[in-house]
Computed example of a mutant assay.
Amino acid sequence: PVVNEAGEILGANFDSTVLTQRNAYGYDVRVNRSVIVTTGAVTAALRDVYGMERLVEELGVE
């Protein structure tokens, strides 16, 4: 998950390199990569692209 300093979930990191695991110690722009999708993007896709309004409601998204 991608979490801000307030502990709120912002999205999910769904693609990264094995070298990204060392980000706990420092970020190296030459080798690290993280692709993040926000919760808003997932909600928009479910609702507007796939027409899954019922699932969005079930997930508790407003």
Rank of each mutant, 00 (worst) to 15 (best):
L19M: 14
Q21D: 13
N23T: 11
P1R: 10
N23V: 13
E58F: 02
E58I: 02
D15I: 04
T17G: 15
A6T: 07
L55E: 00
S34D: 12
A45R: 09
I36V: 15
P1I: 08
V56M: 01
A12R: 12
R54G: 00
V18T: 14
Y50N: 07
I36D: 11
N13Y: 06
D28I: 03
Y25K: 10
N32F: 06
L46C: 05
E58M: 06
R54N: 02
M52Y: 01
I36P: 06
G40Y: 01
T17M: 06
R33P: 02
E58A: 08
E62K: 10
L46Y: 04
T38C: 10
L19E: 14
V2F: 13
T43Q: 14
L55K: 00
A24D: 11
A24K: 10
N4T: 06
V3Q: 11
G60M: 00
T43K: 11
N13V: 11
Q21E: 14
V49L: 15
V61T: 01
L46N: 02
R33V: 14
Y25T: 13
D28K: 06
V3G: 07
G60N: 01
M52D: 03
M52Q: 13
R33W: 08
T20G: 05
M52E: 05
L59K: 02
L19S: 11
R54L: 01
V37T: 13
R54M: 01
L55W: 00
A45K: 05
G51P: 06
T20I: 04
A45V: 12
E53A: 09
N23G: 05
Y25H: 14
D15G: 03
I36G: 05
Y50I: 05
V3M: 14
I9T: 11
V18I: 13
L19I: 08
G26E: 07
D48P: 07
T39R: 12
Y27A: 07
Y25C: 07
E8A: 15
T17N: 09
V35R: 14
V37K: 09
R33N: 11
L19W: 11
N32C: 15
A24V: 12
E58T: 04
E53M: 04
I9R: 15
N23L: 08
E58W: 04
R33Y: 09
V3N: 10
R47G: 00
V49C: 14
N32R: 03
V56F: 01
G7C: 02
E62T: 03
R22C: 08
V2W: 13
E8C: 06
A44V: 04
V2N: 06
